[in-house]
Amino acid sequence: MRVRTTLVGATALLATAALAAPAVAAAGPAGGHGHTGTREAVEAAVEAGVPGVTATAVDGHGRWSTTAGTGDLSTGAPRSTADRYRVGSITKTFVATVLLQLEAEGRLSLDDKVDTWLPGLVRGHGHDGRRITVRQLLNHTSGIYNYTADDDFGRTYFLKDGFFRHRYDTLTPRDLVAIAMRHAPDFAPGTSWNYSNTNYVVAGMVIEKVTGRPYATEIRRRVLDPLRLRATSVPGTRVTVPRPSSRAYSKLAETATGPTYDVTTLNPSLASSAGEMISNSADLDRFYSALLRGKLLPPRQLKEMKTTVKIEGVPNAGYGLGLMDRTLTCGVHVWGHDGGIHGSASSAVTTADGRHSLALNFNGDWAGDMEAVIEKEFC
């Protein structure tokens, strides 16, 4: 189901994302130097059906921002360059960064087995946490079943009738892992690759076990506060998005046709440490630039993070430890992550030297082409 995987990251990670409405562009302080194609691609996304887009780029000429389309379909209010939005699986890079910091401090090893920290958690229908390493969680080679692919979960949280009954449910990380354990693994650990949100739910639990504090606390202490990412938060069970923000829209269906629903408020515990975070484009640019410049990890850990495995079916991309490398059509490599959750599709990427970054968000989850925006910005 395309909607289900997009909502907590996989389709947005590997392909295009999507949406619908009118277009209004706004130049940022850099005066739009060299960003004409980017603006055109943003406007094209709106013309293709995305309600609204916000994007911010940072390069040697400074910061540049643009918006297009609508932030609120009921009032016609435009999107803002300062909009906060749910970032979905971009959360994974923050989680991986914290685990690599803990490795650098000697508090765990990437080669530790999951059972070393969470005995008995990953067990059932062929799953065995005694055979899966922390590294395999982070690069999606564990084989652990993706809980968001479970049919009952999809009907309950991603389709219209279930969503409106259950949008405010609180789910614990153990609840989410238990859903995955009802299924057989996708493959034996280390033998293949498959994107699984369950990996990062378990990774968040490892952080808590190692530190004695919630993963959200560690992200704030280790990343958000040092980088002064004031627009970024880990909401837990908070159902609203802080202002300034736009509304978020979804079809809540397996197709891109039919009515459009406002899905802005929801309990993000359904995504947990696989995709619950909120940020804005400026903060995401700052985060990925700092990460690739080595401001968050020592050289050895950053090298580990950038050691990729092949993503089957995607020839120009590799997946590291919570970080994706893709080669654009012009040969430029960008590092980052995509993310999707109800009504929100996002991407944040930067060059290897951290000097040129782009973050963008569509406030809808059923159409649009984020790759086209990225291509125009860097090529």
Score class of each variant (00 low, 15 high):
324 M>W: 13
92 K>H: 06
205 M>P: 07
176 L>W: 15
179 I>L: 14
339 G>F: 00
108 L>A: 06
269 S>C: 03
236 G>A: 07
62 G>N: 04
146 N>E: 05
301 Q>G: 07
137 L>G: 13
339 G>S: 04
94 F>W: 07
92 K>N: 07
114 V>Y: 10
3 V>R: 15
259 P>S: 02
61 H>N: 10
251 K>M: 08
351 T>D: 12
330 C>D: 15
219 I>R: 06
276 E>P: 11
265 T>F: 06
59 D>E: 03
206 V>P: 13
146 N>M: 02
279 S>I: 03
184 A>R: 03
72 D>Q: 11
177 V>D: 04
11 T>R: 06
232 T>C: 07
95 V>A: 11
85 Y>E: 01
118 L>Y: 14
378 F>M: 00
73 L>V: 12
197 N>L: 03
17 A>V: 04
70 T>L: 02
9 G>F: 10
258 G>H: 15
115 D>F: 15
271 A>I: 01
22 P>V: 07
271 A>P: 10
240 T>L: 08
312 E>W: 11
173 P>A: 02
63 R>S: 05
194 N>C: 05
169 D>P: 09
47 E>D: 10
187 F>Q: 01
25 A>Q: 13
255 T>H: 09
95 V>D: 13
342 H>W: 00
273 S>M: 06
309 V>E: 03
238 R>P: 02
34 G>L: 00
116 T>G: 13
375 E>T: 15
142 S>N: 10
315 P>R: 15
198 T>C: 14
23 A>C: 05
25 A>C: 09
136 Q>F: 08
340 G>Q: 07
71 G>S: 05
266 L>D: 09
58 V>M: 08
146 N>V: 00
285 D>T: 10
53 V>P: 14
365 D>M: 04
112 D>P: 05
56 T>V: 00
299 P>G: 00
167 R>H: 09
79 R>T: 15
297 L>G: 01
377 E>Y: 06
301 Q>N: 08
244 P>M: 04
275 G>S: 00
279 S>T: 05
377 E>Q: 08
208 E>R: 00
74 S>E: 15
261 Y>P: 12
269 S>P: 02
204 G>D: 04
367 A>Y: 06
174 R>A: 06
141 T>Q: 11
343 G>N: 02
374 I>M: 03
52 G>V: 13
311 I>A: 12
75 T>K: 12
